[in-house]
Design a protein around this nucleic acid. Structure first.
Length: 588
RNA sequence: GUUUCUAUAGUUAAAUGGAUAUAACGGUCCCCUCCUAAGGGACAAUUGGGGGUUCGAUUCCCUCUAGAAACACCA
């Protein structure tokens, strides 16, 4: 269904053309002065310069041309040259009746076969998720869902950190602890055991221990580097260990991500790119793109139009091992081969900006991706404590993600128990859902690129722009609908009438914005736009709710219209939170 | 040193170059005979400094100040 703003833009665009101006001046948007009008067009002012004519003269001409159109209740040109528009209730009513029955509330999908690859999560094997992984998972999941909703085939890849020095460190430490394992016996011929020689708990202890040693003990560090290289050269025993590490870690990570409502389509890792590396690097050298510098292989990425200096990208270390950029590039080789995405979205800490700039440029320069493929980096800021510094535990350590989630769920539980008399089991269940929503909404409602302050009390508040407030609104609607159904009513039979009261019109207008918001959130890859929208929609509903008695309304048509309206509101809100990766409980 | 990002009410955050900068929290006040008051309404309060481009700048450009970060063999 064509969006209301687009319909108006088209009418105005035609009028501009008929009056001898360019159609682009017809561009109309939501008014930022709701007290004056619902929609506004600023084209007359822009046109005034191009056509050397006073803006209000142009505006008047346009208004004169279309003022009799049935969709406008009022249309006028004011002060410098704004064209202010209020639409007819009937037109609005028609539109809302339309979106209530259409798939995706009338959102016109791009409906292509194109693929969007979302690279997020970024967990490392052998290492539990900590708060540093929160934003990538939460924002990435939402971005993936938004892309999918707009009609693209979307693939989410966790892209595990399972390669590089960290693996060498673990192998070396394991060798010191259990030297008799067959993996370390070069003459071992048989099959390696199926069972991993460690549990996830041991692994999570081995890794920081090894990584610490590597910093203080140069002998250990060298051994770890050798092990890394051996692994990268395909040492059989080491590969088998890597396999164990992956298996043990992935099943644990899956569980943890599931608790966050985050699901990946692919569980690939850096190690999967390994087979592509040598050919890729050789080709780049042969093509004259990559060259040797200080023993390493690098690629220049400076371009003539650059005003600033960009350091070259290192794609092979002097000891011959692969590094970060190498595996990212080689991963692209595989992704191009298997999926040829139209768009790649990478989510990572914004501090990695330079790395992504370098790696994208190399990918383009070496033709690793097709020229038309687009590579986008969404860098996000850090989650800080109330002191404005990166969030730490009381002891100054890095907080495990599961503990953070538990903390917030417990806090919500306390709050539910002090307010209501709900069964403990139900309160626990509700607190789980609401707590997660509070955390995710608190994160997603900020622009990704900015740092934000984690304030538990604010996030779990039921007032203000918070997850719980949105969920509360949904629950409230559900409870009215449930009551209606229990009295024998059928929501499916209810038909939406044209809006009458101001609060009703506002609610209709909010609902009509849905498609626009989705498009905007997708274009800018900005989940916070959806947060803002569902918050405003909730507000519009609550205002309407406050002054409208729904179930006791005596006029049957009106009552049914209200019910259909709030049902639609609920559906839109539920779609909205789903795009954020949030769920709503039945009761709160 | 070079480069990047950030700067908005007391606090936390919004704003395709548009009108009187928008919300929330906190503050002051008001509203339940009523489907969840876990709600609604009212009031006070903000664009770091200085230039420029523009009819019009929180937004674009320059500069200063303050904070954060990245700068080849970690990922």
């Amino acid at each position: 269904m064509k969006k209301i703003v687009d319909q108006i833009t088209e009418i105005l665009g035609t009028a501009f053309v008929e009056c001898g101006y360019d159609s682009k001046y017809g561009k109309t948007g939501i008014s930022n002065r709701p007290d004056l009008c619902q929609y506004q067009c600023n084209g007359a002012m822009a046109a005034s310069k191009a056509y050397k004519k006073a803006p209000f003269l142009i505006g008047d001409e346009i208004v004169e041309k279309i003022k009799d159109n049935a969709i406008f209740k009022t249309i006028e040109c004011v002060k410098p040259g704004f064209i202010n528009i209020v639409i007819e209730e009937e037109f609005l009513g028609d539109y809302i009746r339309g979106i209530a029955t259409e798939d995706k509330f009338g959102y016109e999908t791009s409906a292509t076969e194109d693929v969007i690859m979302v690279d997020y999560g970024g967990a490392n094997v052998a290492k539990p998720l900590h708060i540093g992984h929160l934003r990538s998972a939460v924002i990435g999941e939402s971005v993936k869902r938004i892309c999918k909703y707009t009609g693209y085939k979307t693939i989410g890849d966790v892209h595990l950190g399972d390669w590089g020095l960290q693996m060498g460190q673990i192998i070396e430490e394991l060798k010191l602890r259990k030297p008799k394992l067959p993996y370390f016996d070069e003459n071992f011929q048989g099959e390696y055991p199926e069972e991993a020689p460690f549990t996830i708990e041991e692994l999570e202890e081995i890794y920081p221990c090894a990584s610490g040693k590597s910093k203080t003990d140069p002998i250990f560090k060298e051994a770890a580097q050798l092990a890394t290289l051996a692994l990268q050269n395909g040492n059989k025993g080491y590969m088998a260990i890597l396999n164990h590490i992956q298996k043990v870690s992935v099943s644990d990570l899956k569980k943890n991500y599931e608790n966050l409502n985050v699901y990946f389509d692919l569980w690939k890792g850096e190690s999967d790119a390994q087979p592509y590396i040598s050919n890729m690097v050789e080709k780049m050298i042969k093509d004259g793109i990559a060259y040797e510098s200080q023993g390493a292989i690098v690629v220049d990425i400076q371009e003539p139009e650059d005003t600033k200096e960009l350091p070259p990208c290192l794609i092979r270390k002097s000891d011959g091992a692969a590094n970060y950029a190498t595996s990212d590039l080689a991963t692209l080789v595989e992704r191009e081969k298997l999926y040829s995405p139209k768009l790649y979205v990478y989510l990572a800490d914004k501090r990695q900006n330079l790395h992504y700039t370098q790696f994208f440029r190399v990918a383009k320069k070496a033709n690793i991706v097709r020229p038309e493929a687009e590579l986008k980096f969404i860098g996000f800021g850090t989650m800080n404590g109330k002191d404005g510094k990166p969030f730490k535990t009381r002891e100054g350590g890095v907080l495990r993600l599961e503990y953070l989630i538990k903390d917030i769920q417990n806090a919500v539980y306390e709050k539910i128990m002090e307010n209501r008399t709900v069964e403990e089991v139900e309160a626990r269940e509700t607190a789980k859902i609401v707590g997660l929503a509070a955390l995710k909404y608190g994160d997603l409602s900020n622009q990704a690129a900015k740092d934000y302050i984690f304030d538990m009390d604010r996030f779990i508040a039921f007032e203000g722009e918070t997850g719980p407030y949105i969920l509360y609104t949904i629950v409230r609607i559900k409870s009215i609908l449930k009551k209606y159904k229990s009295e024998g009513g059928k929501i499916e039979d209810c038909r939406i009438q044209n809006p009458v009261k101001a609060s009703e019109i506002s609610l209709y207008l909010e609902l009509s914005r849905f498609s626009e918001v989705i498009q905007n959130a997708f274009d800018e890859i900005a989940p916070h736009k959806i947060c803002k929208y569902i918050y405003e929609l909730s507000n519009a509903f609550n205002r309407f709710y406050h002054e409208t008695k729904i179930l006791v309304e005596v006029d049957q048509d009106k009552k049914e219209s209200y019910l259909a309206l709030i049902n639609l509101t609920k559906n839109v809100l539920e779609t909205g939170i789903d795009l954020l990766g949030i769920e709503a409980p039945e009761r709160m």
